[in-house]
Design a protein around this nucleic acid. Structure first.
Lengths: 205, 205
DNA sequence: TCGTCCTTTGGACCTAGGTACACCTCCAGC
DNA sequence: GCTGGAGGTGTACCTAGGTCCAAAGGACGA
C-alpha cells in the first residue's frame, strides 16, 4: 500500500485527489496539507511514501517546501500546471523525484505515483528535454531574500516607485534589484518576471 | 437528483469534483467538459440542472462560454480562484447564478450547488460587495476581439515590438491597443494587464 | 583578519512603454 | 446614403523601466 500525502492549496483539488486515489487498491491518502510550510511537518508526522506537491502555492512556494523535505525519505512528485523551465529546473534540482503536469488524466497520475514509489525518476518528455538542453551553462541562479521581496511586489503589478515606498527603499535600489532579478530569471522585463512569479507560486493570485 | 455538468480544463480537478459530488445523495455528475467551447454543446446534449464553470480556461474563456449558455436553462455556478472585480462583474452580468471561490471546502461547494439549483443567486460576500459598490459608474468596458488578441500577447510577456511582428501590425498600433486595453481594464500598465489576463483565464499558462 | 556576498544608494544614460490627438478605411445598421 | 464603431496608422511627447558603473557598510565563514 503506497502512503500518499497530498499538498495543494485548493480544498477542492485535495478532496478530488484523495477521493480518486483512495479508489486505487494499492494507494491510500494518509493526509492533506494546504501549504508548503505545514506539509513539511505533516510529512514528518505521517511518514508518507510519496508526496504529491503543487508547486504553485501561496506563502512558502513549492521549491522552498522541497528543500524542507530533503531530510524526509518520502519521494516527492511535483504536480503543477506549468511548463516554465524556470520552475521545473529548480524543482528537479531541489530533489523532486518526478514532475508531471496537472493536465494528466487521473489514471496516468496514479501510474506516476507507482513509478515514483518504485524508485523511478519520472519526467514529462518536455521537462526531460529542458533538463538535458540547459544543463551546463546557465545555472540555477537563486534569488536572494530581498530580491524575492521585490519580485513579490512586481508580481502584484506594483511600479518601482510603489515598491520603493512599500519596502522603504530608494527607487534606484528597487531598480537594481529588479535588474538582477531579470538576469537571474533569464527574462527580459518585469512583466515576464511577474508571470514567472505567478507560475512558480511566489504570489497567491 | 441534481444533474451537474463539470467544466474545467484540468482532468484532475474534473475527476475530483465528479468523485466527490457523486458521493452526495442528491447530486449526480452527468458529464465533464474541458473547455468553454465544448461545454456549450455538452450542456445542450446532457441537459444538466447546474453547470460548474471554471472561469480560468485556455481558448474560449469563461465569460464567452457563459454567453453561449444563455439559451440553456441550466443554472451556472462559477467556480474560480480569483477575486478580481474585472473577472467577477462580467461573469455575473453574463448570467452566472452563483460565484464561489475555488478554495471553498467541498461540502460548502455541494451546498452552493443545492442553493443555486433551488433558484438562489449565490455570491461570496466579497463579490456581493464588489457588485453593490461599483455598480453604477464604471461600466464593464468589454474588449474588442483585436484587443483580446493583443492582451493575449501581452500576457505571454511579449514586448510591443514582438506583438507587432506576431500580429503583423505596426508598433504604434500595438501601443494604441495596449493603451485602450489598460483603460478598459482599469489598470496602470502592461504588467497589471498581463496578471489580470492570467487571472481571468485569457491565456493558458 | 580577509574575502565574499548581500544590501543599499547614486549618477548617467538609453529604450520601451504609454498618452493624446488626428486621420484613414471598412462595415453594419438605420 | 449617412452614421458610428472598430481597426489601423501616424506624430509628438513624457515617463517609467532597465543597464552600466561605482561605492560603502554589514554579515558571515575560511
Amino acid at each position: 500500500m503506497i502512503r500518499v500525502l497530498v499538498v495543494d492549496d485548493h480544498p477542492v483539488v485535495r478532496q478530488g485527489l484523495r477521493t480518486f486515489l483512495d479508489l486505487q487498491d494499492d494507494i491510500t491518502v494518509v493526509g492533506e496539507s494546504a501549504d508548503g510550510a505545514s506539509c513539511v511537518d505533516d510529512a514528518d508526522r505521517l511518514r508518507p511514501d510519496v508526496i504529491l506537491l503543487d508547486l504553485r502555492m501561496p506563502g512558502a512556494d513549492g521549491v522552498t517546501a522541497l528543500r524542507g523535505l530533503r531530510d524526509n525519505p518520502a519521494r516527492v512528485l511535483v504536480v503543477t500546471s506549468y511548463t516554465e523551465p524556470g520552475a521545473v529546473l529548480p524543482a528537479v534540482r531541489a530533489g523532486a523525484a518526478g514532475y508531471v503536469y496537472k493536465d494528466v488524466d487521473p489514471p496516468a497520475l496514479a501510474a506516476a505515483i507507482r513509478s515514483v514509489h518504485a524508485g523511478h525518476v519520472l519526467l514529462h518528455p518536455d521537462v526531460a528535454r529542458l533538463l538535458t538542453e540547459g544543463d551546463t551553462h546557465p545555472g540555477p541562479a537563486e534569488l536572494t531574500a530581498r530580491e524575492r521581496d521585490v519580485l513579490a511586489e512586481v508580481a502584484r503589478g506594483r511600479s518601482n516607485r510603489e515598491i520603493a515606498r512599500a519596502l522603504s527603499l530608494s527607487e534606484k535600489t528597487v531598480k537594481t534589484h529588479v535588474s538582477s532579478i531579470l538576469g537571474k530569471l533569464g527574462v527580459q522585463d518585469r512583466t515576464q518576471a511577474a508571470l514567472h512569479a505567478v507560475r512558480t507560486g511566489l504570489v497567491d493570485s
